[in-house]
């Protein structure tokens, strides 16, 4: 049977590279995500001032800003394929798992890029001090992986749905709530002086969530992608 000869990974990378190139030319998702984050962070910073907020509030603020910024952009790569009629091209170009992991990788890079931009601004504008850096970085990475793994599948559902509207947010909120709670708890520990905890239990929960969401998305995606 004739088929492609390249490795699975190189096909995924080809889709990832295409999405990155298209994104840098159109700023379709980038502008939505970064402007939302910047606007929200500026509003919070001006309203609350720098310093004085308890660690619990700071942790909640951090994830709320990141969460809603991400929601404004993570669905775009799939929705754009549907709106511009390139989804059919992609369906006939490669296998479902290449599409799923290519889009997952793009969304993860988009979110990590947002965090590289958002975290320093958050720390500076709200005068936040991080007491456990390794834990803080690990939590952000695991949280991002979980967030992206859930939203990639949901975005594909929304893209094929006739009526989109607020469907992405409505579907995402209940799925992501179990992720947000441990994220906020561990982040609070990172921002609290004198609390030197490894946070092992929470990290396990976050890693398990990301793993289950990624695997579940991979298994369910073919049913969404082809009728």
């Amino acid at each position: 049977m004739p088929s492609g000869t390249s490795s699975w990974a190189s096909k995924v990378l080809a889709l990832l590279a295409k999405d990155l190139r298209a994104e840098f030319r159109t700023r379709y998702a980038l502008s939505a995500v970064f402007l939302f984050a910047l606007t929200t962070l500026a509003a919070v910073s001006v309203s609350l001032g720098a310093g004085g907020l308890p660690a619990a509030y700071l942790a909640v603020l951090f994830w709320v800003i990141l969460f809603f910024s991400a929601l404004s952009g993570l669905a775009q790569s799939f929705i754009k394929e549907a709106e511009t009629k390139t989804a059919v091209t992609l369906q006939l170009a490669t296998s479902e798992d290449v599409v799923y992991f290519g889009k997952w990788g793009f969304n993860l890079l988009l979110l990590l890029g947002l965090e590289v931009f958002l975290v320093p601004l958050f720390l500076v504008l709200l005068n936040v001090e991080v007491y456990q850096w390794w834990l803080f970085v690990t939590v952000i990475f695991l949280g991002s992986a979980g967030l992206v793994s859930s939203t990639t599948l949901i975005a594909s559902v929304v893209a094929v749905a006739g009526v989109r509207g607020a469907l992405f947010s409505v579907l995402s909120l209940p799925v992501l709530l179990p992720l947000l709670v441990p994220l906020v708890q561990v982040t609070e520990k990172c921002l609290t002086p004198g609390v030197m905890t490894p946070g092992t239990a929470e990290l396990r929960i976050l890693a398990a969530y990301a793993g289950i969401a990624l695997t579940g998305g991979w298994l369910l995606f073919p049913f969404v992608w082809r009728e």
């Binding site: 000869t5 190189s10 096909k11 889709l15 059919v88 091209t89 490669t94």
Partner: peptide
């Protein structure tokens, strides 16, 4: 088909190179 589109934000060569690479046609 009219219902099928290629990527407006890519060049002609980038479009078919992408389809070549993502399908692994070599």
């Amino acid at each position: 088909a009219p219902d099928l589109a290629l990527y407006d934000e890519l060049t002609a060569l980038e479009n078919i190179r992408f389809l070549n690479d993502v399908g692994g046609w070599g």
